[in-house]
Design a protein around this nucleic acid. Structure first.
Lengths: 116, 116
DNA sequence: CTAACGTACAACCAAATGGTTGTAGATGAA
DNA sequence: TTCATCTACAACCATTTGGTTGTACGTTAG
């Protein structure tokens, strides 16, 4: 249940890139070969290969050979695990926020800055 | 409501580090000076300063002078925004997963090529 | 005033990132 | 078989990252 911090590191790092998030989205609906993916982005095939490798190391996608193509598929369970990890992170924060709210009820002071 | 991809990049990158996540947690309950934070981690004061700067650029924390100390405070609203961004990202994925379930019953084609 | 403290910032460094090109090996099509 | 396609991977490069040390400056305590 305790999320391995290193796993979270890899997960968030993998997701901290627009291209990689897009690949995850694309490969959630049906598989796509790496070369097919590469056509969609303004970078070389090898660059896309590297992005896929990062996602693979984070466990977000997996590859499967199909003839001479390598089909990339987002691991739905991994996405769920990513979401759970983020939820857990946020739950910790929220727990702290809630406890902080109690403390703040008696110190309505300099926490009156911006509200949106 | 469309999340700026670059903002998400900065946000996820800022959170993709164990030390930085810890700083966020710590500064959610009460402020802490940078030097006090630095005592908690096996690295130099300057290194912690840089971590705080990364969090600051991502809008997750803010600093406020108090005498000669610089108090770091997690921006609760920013945490909420981070959470919303992640929720939105995950909602997109979930939407795709749901639609994929439908598509899978009748063989998916390439008609889903461009999203955005 | 002086000394200690907290901070800012620059310079430097090693390693990782994100990109490129080039080469080579499998595989499918003609 | 031959050729085009898809992939893997190495080498290289520029930039960023994450760390260090050193210096300078404002502020508080004595």
């Amino acid at each position: 249940m305790v999320v391995d911090e290193q796993v979270v590191d890899r997960l968030l790092h993998a997701l901290a890139d627009t291209t990689r998030r897009d690949i995850v989205r694309r490969c959630l609906v049906g598989e796509a070969s790496v070369s097919r993916l590469a056509e969609s982005y303004p970078m070389s095939f090898a660059a896309v290969q590297k992005h896929v490798a990062v996602l693979e190391r984070a466990g977000l996608v997996s590859k499967e050979r199909s003839g001479r193509e390598q089909l990339v598929r987002t691991d739905v369970d991994a996405v769920r695990r990513a979401r759970d990890a983020l939820d857990q992170l946020e739950a910790t924060w929220r727990g702290r926020v809630d406890r902080m709210s109690d403390l703040l009820t008696e110190r309505t002071e300099d926490d009156e800055r911006d509200q949106r």
